[in-house]
Design a protein around this nucleic acid. Sequence first.
RNA 1: GCGGGCGUAACUCAGUGGUAGAGUGCCACGUUGCCAACGUGGUUGUCGUGGGUUCAAAUCCCAUCGCCCGCUCCA
Length: 570
Amino acid sequence: MATAKLDMEKLVSLCRRRGFIFQSSEIYGGINGFWDYGPLGVELKKNIKDAWWQDMVRNPPPGPDGQEITMVGLDCSIIMNPKVWEASGHVATFADPTRKCSGCGRFVRADQLWAILAESSEWMNSLIQEFTPITGAIDTPKLLKWAQGKGKKLAPNLALVRNPQVVLSFLATRVNGQPDAPPDLMEMTRYLATEQLHATGLQDPCPLCGGPLGEPKPFSLMFESHAGTEQTEESKVYLRPETAQGIFANFANVVSSSRVKLPFGIAQIGKAFRNEITPRNYIFRSREFEQMEIEFFCHPEQSMKWYEYWRDLRKKWYSTLGIKSDNLKPREQGKEELAHYSIGTTDIEYMFPFSEDPQELEGVAHRGAFDLTAHMSKSGKDLKYFDEDGWNALLHERLEPLKNDPARREEEKKKLNREERPKFIFTPHVIEPSAGADRFTLAVLCEAYSADQVPDADGKMEERLVMKFHPRLAPVKAAILPLVKKDGMPEKAQGLYRELKKHFKVEYDDGGAVGRRYRRQDEIGTPFCITIDGDTMKDDTVTIRDRDTLQQRRVPINSVLEEIRKALMS
RNA sequence: GCGGGCGUAACUCAGUGGUAGAGUGCCACGUUGCCAACGUGGUUGUCGUGGGUUCAAAUCCCAUCGCCCGCUCCA
């Protein structure tokens, strides 16, 4: 743990120093849970998003039966009609009134308070054995003893524990005042939680520490804003907490406009916002983040096959971009963990250095027909799919034999329309591979970070900091370096630089000794250094230095483009 | 949100009431023919922020913001 934490700090420091990631609004003291990508960070993240788009949308691998699969893209607005979030369940789920304990600061769902107190509150379970609520009898000495013993440990902020004399006297007044209506368990508990009855009225206790709970307040993980001039409840809008709902809301548009047939997927990369209670672990859990999501629509009967396809494909994708499989942990969620709509979910997790446990990079969820059904019922629009191919095939099969008997043919057609056609109209099931672009960027940074030993000019071994990015993801693909700043080398090098920058992000650097320049490139993970030396001037060859092996190869200057391209395809 | 720790240059850090520092980096010039070379010169600060105590505050006190760790939350 100690070494893991150290690595993380070094990584954060490197990312700041070299311009990968900055804290947002730093000159104003920063803002918790928001991050900026610097000049190198933006290249890295863009490469990640481009790789995803290329490999999943433009060139997805064949499906489970070797067939080509259909993928299209979408880019939806961040703010949508708020009804979208009512339909998806986000408004309901997050509008749950929550109460904050002023003692320990923890939050309790208001509607679950008494259930939690009755079932899983440790101090309540202990306290309940000290009195006999059925008769309403109160054993004051027993309660006092509890308050001074077990109570001190279990419920340090409970009024009874903090000030037993006063609390018990309030309770006694109540019991003696209305002997015909003894307090029930709930009322008695509230008395025991109340220290200043006249000032505050009866209090509800925190199930964890016994402290008084505040008023219920709706706690939403969604950021709110207003659209339009008036800031009223009617103009309230939300910043999307996920990109997925924009896809569902556009399902019918895509089907009717782009000639796609089931099964097919819709992909989207975009920002999402969640007002996380505790943003933590660098860019891992931030309040503004970017998702790379696919909603893959398929026939319900084939959905398990597609679920497995995406689960396996998505894990493999991370490996092809240089994430060691040892650090990648697919984890099938347990039944109790699953969201209520999900038939199955696999989290693809990564062993980040900041945690002993693997943390989620991506969730591949089988969402069934939940989302389309929800939007159908909320919007009143038909989002079912009509399998025309299947229907036409059936028509052909049944009507072809009757082609010489028009009357029977017509009759059979009517019958099929009545009895068989509805079977080809259904709500597709959805497989959702939902990846975090920032989380993967962080994983790539963690995975790439390494220190090795290399000999310096005197042959002495010394530490070298190197970011071993996959060439495809590296923010800079190659550095063009004149060995020395004379004899026409800079000019020659600049010529090559101008040629290469048409194709890739490359850097030109003629400052200082070449060794220093190599190390600088190592630290930002540039896979290749192209050096122009004296021989280049004679025979138009250059050396290509490999970041990881430090080996140099001499190649013709006009083959450099192809050499880099080859590495990017690997 | 609670508890604990921390906050000084781009980075790592020293500085415990009396002139704000070091190393690294970065920039320029010279030199330099292959792995953080060398020389010379230069560069960087609201000491996180605000207030208080004091003749005097990076240093002591209070508040606040941010970061880290733990709790909690994570559809």
